[in-house]
Amino acid sequence: MAAKVDLRRFPGFLTVTILCLFVLYAPLIVVAVYSFNASSSITNWGGVSLTWYADVFTGPEAPKFQKAALNSLVIAVCAATAATVIATLAAVAMTRAGRFKGKTLGFALINLPLMVPEVVTAVASLVFFSAIGFTTGLMTILIAHIVFCIPFAYLPIAARMQSIPDMFEQAAMDLYATPREAFKLVLLPLMTPGILSGFLLAFIISLDDFLITNFVKGAGVETLPTAIFGSVKQGIKPNIMAISTLMLAVSVVFVSLSWLIGRTGQDKKQAR
């Protein structure tokens, strides 16, 4: 046996990791680079310029994309908020309320949006809204988004709650706090990091969705992904690359944010 073999190390794993990161980043970086291309032909390099970024904000398609971005943002905020509230209640029930009738089934129901393939949810929602005579529009997108955001909001919240022992609330109750106060003043602050990361996850998932939105969107309502898809089908144009790069930047900011939130949550836990 050789003197000292690092048991954690396997030959070639570093190479694979670098390959993995390369595959993940190469397309994004290429698009980001080409978004600064001065040439209007997307494959020829014409020098560095911010033309296409200016085009995103002032070009002929700017109003369309701005409206779509506003729609996306509003839907994501509303859907994530609603889903987070609903998921928080459910998480309290699942982790704090002991046994009750329908608990197992209820858990399955919360996770149902994760299990039904997206395309099935999409066509089912379309047919359902049409059958009940619900005119598609911003509202139908919002409803569909709330549904599939619930499990994504639920998972981090429930995970967080499971790690909070309930002795704090018990202590509060012993000190004559009402259940409402115990929830508001003790449990809720402890849950906050979980709730925030649940909200962020739901927010990103809502922003990300194309397929379901494309089926349930109503007349004249576009979200950023459906607007981009419509545009991309007619060719990948430089302004799309600029939009993509901007969205990439927003995503990076968001991950960093949620990463930092997660870290402070953990630091607190460790400090405790």
Partner: peptide, 11 residues
């Protein structure tokens, strides 16, 4: 975390 559509288009 980057939009799936954008990743697919980039590819």
């Amino acid at each position: 975390w980057v939009n799936l559509l954008i990743r697919t288009v980039s590819m």
